[in-house]
């Protein structure tokens, strides 16, 4: 494993403030998918967004990329890149920035690659559009990129269609496309969830190498705590559309303070655990439209809930480099 790079102290590259995304449907109350999420990403930093399905992690990334539909979606708050507000940028200007400054790798490469266009063309398209390369130069660059992401025989592979490649290879192509214009921010949304573990290890290693090489910042979105443990410097844990805990990875995994983080870590079967150890399951499951408005959304499943949890919404408090949203956190010495 490569050692994580030191946390840069420069101006944040990306600044997300109080981001809210509501899905509206006629005759029904709004569904708040993201409910006031704030975080920073420094240049070259690797940040993790972790949570279960429905916690709003993917919607957050789609909102940052401005990929959500206009109709029926209300986005408020602020997303600034280099100090420039992305949420109010014109569609044309945003298109300019997507791919060049910030790009994304999705979970399922088969549905995010165009099935009827050879992969080479899908890479050269980006290069010609954003870097103004001519046809021959772009083709050469595409071959180099495919070679760089570890695709054997890239000169012949440029003419292959996505269905002719295996899942791991397709994800490598996605990474090549995303990094073609050397963006400064890469968002990876569950990039390895559809892959087998041995292939997942290859892709994570590649992502790590690529961000180190290009100096891009990475937002890693995943449900897998194991993936973030080895990759991200700062980890944000989301529940019900809000960040419930944020800390540097060693602190978060070493002494998880929020009952949700704590419970999550205890409920995963671990390879290095003693045999016959009973898992401590978190009771219940995630429900839609969580009542953050005047209570803690995790309270119904929380073993440490106190009276205040059902009366007041816990605010996120920042103490000693750790953000925590809880009235009765797990004592730091409990681990």
């Amino acid at each position: 494993m490569t050692a994580p790079r030191p946390t840069p102290t420069a101006e944040p590259l990306l600044q997300v403030r109080d981001l809210r995304v509501a899905f509206r449907r006629r005759g029904e109350p709004d569904t708040l998918a993201v409910d006031g999420v704030s975080f920073d990403v420094a240049p070259g930093q690797v940040v993790g967004l972790v949570g279960e399905s429905g916690c709003g992690k993917s919607v957050t990334s789609m909102a940052i990329m401005r990929l959500l539909p206009r109709r029926g979606v209300q986005i408020t708050g602020s997303v600034k890149m280099d100090g420039e507000e992305l949420l109010t940028l014109s569609e044309a200007k945003m298109r300019e920035r997507r791919g060049r400054d910030l790009s994304m790798v999705f979970q399922d490469p088969l549905s995010s690659l165009n099935p009827v266009v050879p992969i080479g063309l899908q890479i050269t398209e980006v290069l010609r559009r954003h870097r103004g390369m001519d046809k021959e130069k772009a083709r050469q660059a595409a071959v180099d990129l495919l070679d760089r992401v570890g695709i054997p025989d890239p000169r012949r592979r440029v003419t292959a269609y996505p269905h002719q490649l295996s899942g791991g290879m397709r994800q490598r192509v996605m990474i090549a496309i995303a990094l073609a214009c050397r963006p400064r921010l890469l968002i990876a949304d569950e990039p390895t969830t559809a892959l087998d573990v041995t292939i997942q290890a290859q892709i994570l290693e590649l992502l790590k190498e690529m961000v180190a090489e290009t100096g891009a910042a990475l937002i890693m979105i995943t449900h897998d705590l194991g993936v973030v443990a080895g990759l991200c410097e700062t980890v944000n844990v989301l529940y019900g559309g809000r960040i419930v805990e944020r800390a540097q990875r060693h602190r978060l995994f070493g002494t998880p303070r929020h009952p949700y983080t704590h419970g999550l870590l205890r409920s995963i079967p671990r390879l290095d655990a003693a045999a016959g150890e009973q898992l401590e399951a978190i009771p219940g499951s995630v429900v839609d439209n969580l009542p953050w408005a005047h209570a803690c959304a995790f309270q119904p499943r929380c073993p440490r809930s106190v009276d205040r949890c059902v009366e007041v919404t816990p605010e996120a408090e920042n103490t000693g480099g750790r953000l925590l949203r809880c009235f009765n956190p797990v004592p730091a010495s409990a681990e």
């Binding site: 494993m1 041995t198 290890a201 994570l204 993936v227 443990a229």
Partner: peptide, 20 residues
């Protein structure tokens, strides 16, 4: 076994991975 990520940063930093 070496490819499976473990939710423990200390261990993840130390581990030797056999990449296939």
């Amino acid at each position: 076994l070496s490819a499976i990520p473990v939710p423990d940063p200390e261990l993840e930093d130390r581990r030797e991975r056999i990449l296939l």
